[in-house]
Design a protein around this nucleic acid. Structure first.
Length: 419
RNA sequence: GUGGGCGUAGCUCAGUUGGUUAGAGCGUCUGGUUGUGGCCCAGAAGGUCAUGGGUUCAAAUCCCAUCGUUCACCCCA
């Protein structure tokens, strides 16, 4: 038997309720903050991601689904959305049309990692990008917006962490300081961190190794190396968050893995979903647009993992477990009333009434059981003596009462259903 | 890429130190009035015990391999 590809999951009819609930919530929150939806293709030219995300990042260097199409072009299934949004922004000259633009998306993403709790190879993210402003209020708005989706979905155990990475210049100075600090401790570092020393030194802050953590607690911190402008930008962000009463903590160890971040970074984590605890991550990327061939343009954004949100929701018991519900189930009493049932179903549906009937030639009892299982508000029975007088029986499934009404008068049937 | 756990009915799982026809609950189906649901009762269907090999008189149970899955490292949403 053919099975789904490792790391991919079917979203079955029984799962769909909560997905739709999340999607609807995202749409309504985004609308409140005036973000407009953008959809981009699932694949792009590979170079977009290698240039945008960073050649040396794990995502680009070992996790992308890349293939060559028949024309010889190297193509990659999108591992994240920011690069694609910026590409579309530049390709369609949206910057000329709007000097400031807010966009959001809901989309599948693809990364070839080993699956584990909260990590799939095809997964879904929603996120937002605001392009054209360096206003710290926007950084704060991003945090508030993403947090508001999580909270309104029903999650309670959430923690907001923020940090600032400054500019590439100040970060370089800082990284040099960090390098010289770590040189003397190099032999004590874990093997992983020894590798990180060369590849991505800031990542050593993320290490779960105890010795690493002790060493890094003593290490110089990035905030002391920010220049005046970046520092006051960060202060402003914090001020705005405080203004709206959002609880957060500054975590100087919070470094993001993608190369394009500058200044503010943030993460919202949940302790409820295992080791992949980040529900949402984002920050400012003031240099990316230039890097991808546009004019220098400040921008900020975030992405959130939908499977992780649903996982957290499950573990916090905030899933909606309500089942199916329909308005009417038509029970066919006599086998030969198939045409009448079919016609009535059509009429009811065209009147906006959710209607179901039997397709398996089942007994009246089985049809009734099915009506009950589907949580039908009413049953309409077609056949028997009543039908000989031109009537059908309308049964209220809640209280069990039933009345007769004319089969030919759809308006009268509708009236009986509204009681 | 590295390491650990686990693969028995549609689902969740039992299965004693290897020992006859492999079980339960839920779900499904049928029946309990001729034309009426929920609760209850009775019955039924449904399993190559992941796959392949080995040990043994005997394997769901022990060993090996493969595949799948899951968790963690790594990395990230």
């Amino acid at each position: 038997m053919i099975k789904a590809i490792t790391g991919t999951k079917d979203i079955l009819p029984n799962d769909i309720n909560n997905w739709r609930r999340l999607e609807n919530l995202i749409e309504s929150r985004m609308k409140l903050y005036n973000y407009r939806e953008i959809r981009t293709p699932v694949f792009e030219e590979t170079s977009l991601f290698s240039r945008g995300i960073g050649e040396t990042t794990d995502i680009v260097s070992k996790e992308m689904y890349t293939f060559t199409d028949r024309s010889g072009t190297s193509i990659t299934l999108k591992p994240e959305m920011t690069a694609s949004v910026v590409r579309a922004y530049l390709e369609h000259n949206l910057g000329k049309q709007y000097n400031f633009l807010k966009m959001y998306y809901i989309s599948p993403m693809f990364r070839q990692e080993r699956p584990q709790a909260g990590r799939l190879r095809q997964f879904h993210q929603f996120g937002a990008e605001a392009i054209g402003s360096n206003d710290p209020a926007l950084d704060a708005e991003m945090i508030e917006l993403s947090y508001s989706v999580l909270v309104n979905f029903g999650l309670k155990n959430l923690e907001i962490k923020i940090n600032s990475l400054g500019t590439p210049e100040s970060r370089e100075i800082y990284k040099n300081e960090l390098r010289s600090y770590l040189k003397s401790k190099f032999s004590d570092l874990s093997d992983d961190s020894k590798k990180r020393f060369n590849s991505n030194i800031l990542r050593i802050f993320d290490s779960k190794d105890e010795t690493d953590q002790i060493i890094m607690n003593q290490a110089p911190k990035i905030l002391s190396y920010l220049d005046g402008q970046d520092l006051s930008h960060f202060e402003e962000v914090k001020k705005y968050l405080n203004l709206i009463g959002l609880n957060f903590s500054v975590d100087e160890k919070l470094v993001r893995g993608l190369d394009y971040y500058t200044n503010t970074t943030f993460e919202i984590i949940s302790p409820k979903i295992g080791s992949q605890s980040a529900l949402c991550g984002g920050g400012r990327y003031n240099l990316l647009i230039e890097q991808l061939g546009g004019k220098p343009t400040p921008a900020t954004g975030f992405a959130a993992g939908m499977e992780r949100i649903l996982l957290a929701c499950q573990n916090e018991n905030c899933m909606d477990s309500s089942g199916q519900k329909i308005d009417v189930y038509i029970v066919r009493i006599d086998q030969d009333k198939e045409s009448e049932v079919f016609k009535l179903a059509s009429q009811l549906r065209n009147n906006g009434i959710t209607t179901e009937h039997d397709y398996l030639s089942r007994s009246v009892k089985a049809q009734m059981r099915e009506a009950n299982r589907l949580n039908s508000n009413f049953v309409i029975m077609v056949g028997g003596n009543e039908f000989k007088h031109g009537n059908v029986v309308v049964k209220n499934m809640e209280d069990g009462t039933q009345v007769e009404t004319k089969f030919s008068d759809i308006n009268e049937i509708k009236r009986k259903l509204s009681k």
